[in-house]
């Protein structure tokens, strides 16, 4: 590499009406860990209108510096102006690593930026590590590269991907995948104001209306989760999952298959393309346990799996396994719980 100094670790900060998205703070924490290993700084990229007040919070979570682009035209996310401002910053400062949340915003913005910069981009990583990489094409060993780990091929393989071109090494990560550390109260950092220069061509797309609801359920905060999968069989039968959850004081969740089948809304989906959870108890009912689903729940303190198929992969992460028909087992569970002394 021709650059004298290694670039820093950047995190795109997604904010909505002045509230920082959880995933952005989680990525600041992960970014700080990676930056520590590389001996470089962690920097936030914050765009919006009147968002300077968010900088101290980012410093406390671990940012050494916040690039702050404030402009009325950046108040709401729009891919063209956001990508333009960020590409300008990349060309000026040459970050080594650039992390984005895999939200609707991140999944629109990160590819647009990567394409403009001709940088590699890996979607929905479930783990990030620093390691060396031997490029078989060139025979070179590249030290200190970002290992971008993600399930692929419908979850049947886990791939480790490396960006071999110029920096930045770009990835997106789902909310809840990286751990949120405690902020260090009073920790200080820098703020670098960014001059925003936009042309009419960057502003041709307009937001007419926006409708946003709070999620139906906050699975991330739930201590007990009862989740149903394709094995539940029908929408009506999903009522059984709700009954069990209600009885033991848990939240209702689902696998992607159950959501795709239309039995329950996407807000309840656990897994790589849903929420990642770490409850005290996770009860998986009729969930076979694809690697994507397991990526979202395998760190639960205790896992109870109920499935008719003794070979279901969910049993490989479960602490307790019941091989049987959930239509029989769940009523027994409800009965046993109600009869507890």
């Amino acid at each position: 590499m021709s650059k004298k100094k290694a670039g820093n670790v950047w995190v795109f900060i997604e904010q909505d009406d002045g509230r920082i998205a959880d995933v952005s703070l989680e990525l600041v924490c992960k970014g700080r860990e990676l930056a520590g290993q590389l001996g470089v700084k962690t920097e936030a990229v914050l765009l919006g209108q009147r968002v300077a007040g968010l900088a101290p919070r980012l410093h406390e979570y671990g940012c050494d510096n916040v690039f702050l682009a404030e402009d009325a035209r950046l108040e709401h996310f729009s891919p063209l102006p956001y990508a333009k401002v960020i590409l300008g910053l990349i060309h000026q400062h040459h970050p080594n690593i650039f992390l984005f949340g895999a939200t609707a915003v991140g999944r629109s913005l990160a590819p647009r930026v990567a394409s403009g910069k001709l940088a590699g981009l890996t979607a929905d990583c479930t783990d990030l590590r620093i390691d060396s990489f031997e490029d078989k094409a060139s025979g070179q060993v590249l030290p200190n590269k970002l290992m971008q780990i993600r399930p692929a091929f419908g979850g049947n393989i886990i791939a480790t991907i490396v960006n071999t071109w110029d920096d930045p090494q770009m990835v997106t990560v789902r909310e809840g995948v990286m751990r949120l550390d405690e902020p260090a109260a009073g920790r200080r950092g820098e703020v670098t104001p960014v001059a925003v220069s936009l042309e009419a061509a960057d502003l041709v797309v307009s937001l007419v209306k926006r409708f946003k609801q709070e999620k139906e359920v906050n699975l991330k905060a739930a201590q007990i989760i009862v989740a149903g999968g394709y094995g539940v069989g029908t929408k009506e039968n999903f009522q059984l999952i709700r009954q069990l959850a209600e009885t033991i004081g848990g939240a209702v969740a689902a696998s992607r298959a159950a959501v795709d089948a239309g039995w329950i809304s996407h807000d309840h989906q656990v897994g790589q393309t849903g929420v990642t959870v770490r409850p005290r108890l996770y009860i998986a009912c009729g969930i076979s346990g694809s690697v994507q689903h397991r990526a979202g729940m395998s760190e639960s303190a205790k896992i109870l799996a109920i499935n008719e198929d003794p070979g279901a992969p969910i049993f490989s992460v479960a602490h307790y396994g019941v091989v049987g028909d959930l239509n029989v087992v769940i009523p027994k569970l409800i009965k046993a719980y109600k009869a507890r002394v």
């Binding site: 940088a119 590699g120 396994g321 091989v323």
Partner: peptide, 22 residues
């Protein structure tokens, strides 16, 4: 720019979960 460094096939094997009779 992205290269696959390693591919791990997901191998489906059960490990020590406590079996509870239904």
């Amino acid at each position: 720019p992205t290269k696959v460094k390693a591919i791990q096939s997901v191998v489906l094997t059960g490990k020590g979960s406590k079996q509870v009779p239904p």
